[in-house]
Design a protein around this nucleic acid. Sequence first.
DNA 1: TTCTCAATAAATATCGAAATTATGTTTGAC
DNA 2: GTCAAACATAATTTCGATATTTATTGAGAA
Lengths: 245, 245
Amino acid sequence: MRSLYPVAKTPESQFEGPAKTMAAAVYAQIRRDIVLGRLEAGSKLRLEVLSKAYEIGMSPLREALARLTGDALVVTEGQRGYWVSPLSIEEFDDVTRVRTLIETEALHQSILQGDDVWERDVRQSFETLTEVEGRMEKGAEDLTEAFEHANSEFHKALISACGSPWLMRLADVLNRQSQRYRLVSLSNSRSRGRHVRDEHYGIMDAALARQALRACRLVERHFSNTQEIVREALQVHVAEFQIGP
Amino acid sequence: MRSLYPVAKTPESQFEGPAKTMAAAVYAQIRRDIVLGRLEAGSKLRLEVLSKAYEIGMSPLREALARLTGDALVVTEGQRGYWVSPLSIEEFDDVTRVRTLIETEALHQSILQGDDVWERDVRQSFETLTEVEGRMEKGAEDLTEAFEHANSEFHKALISACGSPWLMRLADVLNRQSQRYRLVSLSNSRSRGRHVRDEHYGIMDAALARQALRACRLVERHFSNTQEIVREALQVHVAEFQIGP
DNA sequence: TTCTCAATAAATATCGAAATTATGTTTGAC
DNA sequence: GTCAAACATAATTTCGATATTTATTGAGAA
């Protein structure tokens, strides 16, 4: 009989430390599966199915879903169950808009206050991101997850010196929302000849040069470029999946 | 034997519609009790105690606490249980700062886009708020809860035309955080001769006159005034409660 | 005695399974 | 065809079992 308690075996634990409870572990797992699209947007989350799939009881499962509701990754309707939050162009515009607001404010403060530890973190996370991007160019392995992680870490590093836990918390939530959309559009994002790496380099450069306004403008443009690409991809996606028979 | 399912009996249900599940009902109840300070900041939330107090089983209780964790009203540590999130001056400064950012942005957009329904809602919620304030002046009943509700509704109405669900959602979360602090300082807020009503009137006036910048500046000042008062009260509060025997 | 640390006991959190209740769908009477 | 009752499906909750943390006790060393 396997141990009742977990469990440092989820991919997350590599980055966030081992989950201390089954509920926390399954929360991380489901969250990842939603963000990565393994649980399709809008689909019903049948409790019994999830319970079997994740090998877990109802109680911790529901706890996890309740937390995900707070992250707006899952929606619930009393007595009728849970669904993966649907995707829509309108919502992505909204997410991007608010994310821009939060993240530029945080970056601005970060640039004013960042010390050399901050500079080191920014450089380091950029290196890592670049390295993953390089490996992605070469094709072969699926580095989607690794790329998204490195990307998140880079943006986190940039705002890490802003001194506001709330800004960082909200940036994190909104980034996760945004990820869901980005991943939908990942296929044609490269094909359109976008130079994400250059954009990232520009942001880092401006930040380390303490040019707050320039850095913020670049972030705005960075997000706005992403927005455009996602919009296109999403129109196709919506047409394919949601206007069904 | 009483019915297993709820039950539109919580004060919230008056405003938010009846909770459909026990978990949702107890979520609303505990949230209210935390915001109003009936569950003291920093205190341990013993599951068995809560289970008896709210007459509910462990599973829905834990579900509610998981959701409250997402609202940052409760903190948890794996296998060690739950606590009411503590209050601190630093966090209040942070909350105020981010709330100002969110709410001014939302107000600005709202003023640009608001139609006559919006105008009516703003006026109406201001009336209600004023009316409650009036009754408060006369002393007698404890209208804390009614006041806070009317206040929240007023601020919600102001930003209701901003067109951004995410801004409204975040404003709501941050307002609830802020409430906890305001309530701590409620006793001496009046004594310092602050004219909250005038501030509210000014904001409404500017908003309805479509003077976005002025309205935002007034909101900033409004929050900043609150901040000062809370800071004072909190220093006393912290001194009283947290530097123990 | 007083302190430290280990062993043990009590308290508490966590989880899984089963029972209960709600929802939606089908069936049958009118 | 329409409505209502019975049924099937699924969500929600209760309850009991188990793991973990915390408090207590006692033995040995300073």
